[in-house]
Simulated scan of single mutants.
Amino acid sequence: MASDSSFDIVSKIDRQEAENALNQARKEVEQRYDFKGTGASIEWSGDSVLIKANSEERAKAVLDVFQSKVIKRGISLKSLDSADPVASGKEYRIVTTLKEGISSEDAKKVSKLIRDEGPKSVKSQIQGDELRVQSKSRDDLQEVQRMLKAADLDVDLQFINYR
Protein backbone atom coordinates (compact mmCIF):
# COMPACT_ATOMS: atom_id res chain seq x y z
CA MET A 1 0.00 0.00 0.00
CA ALA A 2 1.48 3.35 -1.07
CA SER A 3 1.51 6.08 1.55
CA ASP A 4 0.83 9.73 0.84
CA SER A 5 3.72 11.97 -0.14
CA SER A 6 3.68 15.57 1.03
CA PHE A 7 5.51 18.87 1.20
CA ASP A 8 5.00 22.14 3.04
CA ILE A 9 4.68 25.57 1.46
CA VAL A 10 6.21 28.35 3.56
CA SER A 11 7.33 31.94 3.19
CA LYS A 12 10.52 32.56 5.17
CA ILE A 13 13.42 34.99 5.03
CA ASP A 14 17.01 34.14 5.91
CA ARG A 15 17.61 36.75 8.65
CA GLN A 16 21.38 36.63 8.22
CA GLU A 17 21.08 37.42 4.50
CA ALA A 18 18.71 40.33 5.31
CA GLU A 19 21.24 41.62 7.86
CA ASN A 20 24.05 41.35 5.28
CA ALA A 21 21.97 43.20 2.66
CA LEU A 22 21.25 46.02 5.13
CA ASN A 23 24.92 46.32 6.10
CA GLN A 24 25.98 46.44 2.44
CA ALA A 25 23.34 49.10 1.71
CA ARG A 26 24.46 51.15 4.74
CA LYS A 27 28.10 51.06 3.57
CA GLU A 28 27.14 52.12 0.05
CA VAL A 29 24.98 55.00 1.33
CA GLU A 30 27.82 56.22 3.58
CA GLN A 31 30.35 56.13 0.72
CA ARG A 32 28.37 57.41 -2.27
CA TYR A 33 29.02 61.01 -3.23
CA ASP A 34 25.39 61.79 -4.11
CA PHE A 35 24.31 60.92 -0.53
CA LYS A 36 26.91 63.15 1.17
CA GLY A 37 25.29 65.81 3.36
CA THR A 38 21.74 64.56 2.77
CA GLY A 39 21.29 62.86 6.14
CA ALA A 40 20.60 59.61 4.30
CA SER A 41 20.71 56.53 6.51
CA ILE A 42 19.34 53.01 6.73
CA GLU A 43 19.03 50.96 9.93
CA TRP A 44 17.02 48.32 11.76
CA SER A 45 14.03 49.54 13.73
CA GLY A 46 12.81 46.46 15.56
CA ASP A 47 11.83 43.92 12.90
CA SER A 48 11.55 46.53 10.15
CA VAL A 49 14.04 48.68 8.26
CA LEU A 50 13.98 52.48 8.72
CA ILE A 51 15.25 54.69 5.89
CA LYS A 52 15.81 58.41 6.50
CA ALA A 53 16.84 61.26 4.19
CA ASN A 54 16.28 65.01 3.78
CA SER A 55 14.23 64.63 0.58
CA GLU A 56 11.70 62.17 -0.75
CA GLU A 57 13.87 61.40 -3.79
CA ARG A 58 16.91 60.60 -1.60
CA ALA A 59 14.83 58.32 0.64
CA LYS A 60 13.56 56.46 -2.44
CA ALA A 61 17.14 56.20 -3.75
CA VAL A 62 18.27 54.63 -0.45
CA LEU A 63 15.34 52.19 -0.71
CA ASP A 64 16.45 51.33 -4.26
CA VAL A 65 19.99 50.62 -3.00
CA PHE A 66 18.58 48.37 -0.26
CA GLN A 67 16.35 46.50 -2.73
CA SER A 68 19.28 45.85 -5.08
CA LYS A 69 21.33 44.42 -2.18
CA VAL A 70 18.37 42.25 -1.08
CA ILE A 71 18.06 40.80 -4.60
CA LYS A 72 21.80 40.04 -4.74
CA ARG A 73 21.49 38.17 -1.40
CA GLY A 74 18.77 35.89 -2.84
CA ILE A 75 15.74 37.38 -1.06
CA SER A 76 12.66 38.06 -3.17
CA LEU A 77 11.25 41.61 -3.31
CA LYS A 78 7.85 40.01 -2.58
CA SER A 79 9.16 39.59 0.97
CA LEU A 80 9.52 43.36 1.41
CA ASP A 81 6.61 45.64 2.21
CA SER A 82 7.63 49.30 1.84
CA ALA A 83 5.42 52.16 2.99
CA ASP A 84 5.27 55.48 1.17
CA PRO A 85 7.73 58.19 2.27
CA VAL A 86 6.44 60.13 5.27
CA ALA A 87 7.65 63.63 6.11
CA SER A 88 8.45 64.33 9.76
CA GLY A 89 9.90 67.78 10.14
CA LYS A 90 12.71 68.24 7.63
CA GLU A 91 13.21 64.49 7.29
CA TYR A 92 11.57 61.87 5.08
CA ARG A 93 11.19 58.33 6.39
CA ILE A 94 10.34 55.03 4.72
CA VAL A 95 9.51 52.01 6.86
CA THR A 96 10.07 48.66 5.15
CA THR A 97 8.89 45.48 6.84
CA LEU A 98 10.06 41.97 6.04
CA LYS A 99 7.10 39.65 5.48
CA GLU A 100 7.41 36.14 6.87
CA GLY A 101 4.74 33.47 6.95
CA ILE A 102 1.75 33.11 4.68
CA SER A 103 -1.24 35.19 5.72
CA SER A 104 -4.55 33.33 5.99
CA GLU A 105 -5.86 35.32 3.01
CA ASP A 106 -2.89 34.31 0.83
CA ALA A 107 -3.06 30.72 2.10
CA LYS A 108 -6.70 30.54 1.00
CA LYS A 109 -5.74 31.89 -2.47
CA VAL A 110 -2.97 29.28 -2.86
CA SER A 111 -5.23 26.49 -1.60
CA LYS A 112 -7.99 27.53 -4.03
CA LEU A 113 -5.47 27.66 -6.90
CA ILE A 114 -4.29 24.12 -6.07
CA ARG A 115 -7.88 22.87 -5.82
CA ASP A 116 -9.04 24.55 -9.06
CA GLU A 117 -6.03 24.11 -11.36
CA GLY A 118 -3.96 21.35 -9.80
CA PRO A 119 -4.28 17.60 -10.24
CA LYS A 120 -7.44 16.15 -8.63
CA SER A 121 -5.56 13.73 -6.37
CA VAL A 122 -3.84 16.59 -4.50
CA LYS A 123 -5.16 17.82 -1.14
CA SER A 124 -3.97 20.95 0.66
CA GLN A 125 -4.60 22.11 4.20
CA ILE A 126 -3.69 25.32 6.00
CA GLN A 127 -1.57 24.86 9.13
CA GLY A 128 -0.97 28.22 10.80
CA ASP A 129 1.25 30.28 8.51
CA GLU A 130 2.09 27.40 6.15
CA LEU A 131 0.33 24.94 3.87
CA ARG A 132 0.70 21.16 3.71
CA VAL A 133 0.10 19.58 0.29
CA GLN A 134 -0.50 15.80 0.07
CA SER A 135 -0.99 13.31 -2.72
CA LYS A 136 -0.36 9.63 -3.46
CA SER A 137 1.60 10.61 -6.57
CA ARG A 138 4.93 12.45 -6.31
CA ASP A 139 4.49 13.53 -9.93
CA ASP A 140 1.29 15.37 -8.96
CA LEU A 141 3.16 17.15 -6.14
CA GLN A 142 5.88 18.23 -8.57
CA GLU A 143 3.17 19.48 -10.93
CA VAL A 144 1.71 21.60 -8.10
CA GLN A 145 5.16 23.06 -7.41
CA ARG A 146 5.62 23.97 -11.08
CA MET A 147 2.15 25.52 -11.19
CA LEU A 148 2.75 27.65 -8.07
CA LYS A 149 6.16 28.83 -9.32
CA ALA A 150 4.54 29.95 -12.60
CA ALA A 151 1.60 31.66 -10.83
CA ASP A 152 1.92 35.39 -10.15
CA LEU A 153 1.33 35.49 -6.40
CA ASP A 154 2.04 38.33 -3.95
CA VAL A 155 3.98 35.98 -1.67
CA ASP A 156 7.47 34.49 -1.97
CA LEU A 157 6.93 30.73 -1.59
CA GLN A 158 9.41 28.02 -0.66
CA PHE A 159 8.78 24.28 -0.67
CA ILE A 160 10.19 22.29 2.26
CA ASN A 161 9.83 18.89 4.00
CA TYR A 162 9.36 16.96 0.77
CA ARG A 163 8.52 13.40 1.88
Rank of each mutant, 00 (worst) to 15 (best):
G89H: 09
R32P: 12
G128M: 05
D47W: 07
D4K: 12
L148R: 03
E100A: 04
D34M: 13
D154E: 12
R138S: 06
R15M: 13
Y162E: 13
G118Q: 00
S103M: 05
E43R: 10
K123G: 04
D84F: 03
K109I: 04
A61K: 09
S41C: 10
E19D: 14
I13C: 12
L141W: 07
D47V: 08
A83I: 01
S5Y: 11
V29T: 07
R58S: 13
V110K: 01
M147G: 13
S111K: 13
Y162Q: 15
I94E: 01
I94N: 02
R138G: 03
A151F: 07
A151E: 15
L22Q: 06
A59F: 03
I94W: 01
I9D: 01
V49N: 05
V110P: 01
L141R: 06
E143C: 02
V110L: 07
T96Q: 04
V122L: 02
A2C: 08
S6V: 04
G39M: 08
S48M: 08
S88H: 05
Q24V: 10
K12H: 09
K112P: 00
S103G: 04
A40T: 08
L113E: 08
K136L: 11
K136M: 06
S3D: 10
Q31K: 15
Q145W: 00
R93G: 00
P85Y: 07
M147W: 09
V155G: 01
K69H: 13
F159C: 07
N20Y: 08
E57R: 14
G101C: 06
K149F: 07
V95N: 13
V133Q: 05
I75A: 09
I160W: 06
I51V: 14
S82D: 08
I71R: 12
A59S: 07
E91G: 00
E143G: 04
K149E: 15
G101I: 06
L131N: 04
I13T: 14
K108P: 00
R138E: 13
S124P: 00
Q24D: 14
L141N: 07
R115E: 13
Q24K: 14
S124R: 06
K120L: 11
Q127N: 11
S137M: 10
D8K: 15
D140R: 09
A61E: 11
S135T: 05
I102F: 01
K72F: 02
E30K: 12
E57T: 05
S137G: 10
R163S: 12
A87T: 06
N20H: 14
D14H: 12
L98T: 04
D154T: 08
E28T: 10
D84E: 15
Q134G: 10
I94P: 00
E117A: 08
E28R: 14
A2D: 12
A150L: 09
I102E: 02
L157A: 06
K136R: 08
L98I: 15
E100L: 03
R132V: 15
V144T: 10
F35E: 11
R163Q: 14
Q16Y: 07
S45Y: 06
L80E: 05
I71V: 15
K90P: 01
S41Y: 12
S68D: 15
K112F: 00
I114D: 01
L22I: 09
Q145T: 07
D152H: 11
L141Y: 08
R58V: 05
Y33H: 10
N54E: 10
K108L: 06
V70T: 01
E130K: 14
S82T: 07
G118N: 01
I114H: 00
S103Q: 00
I114C: 01
R132W: 08
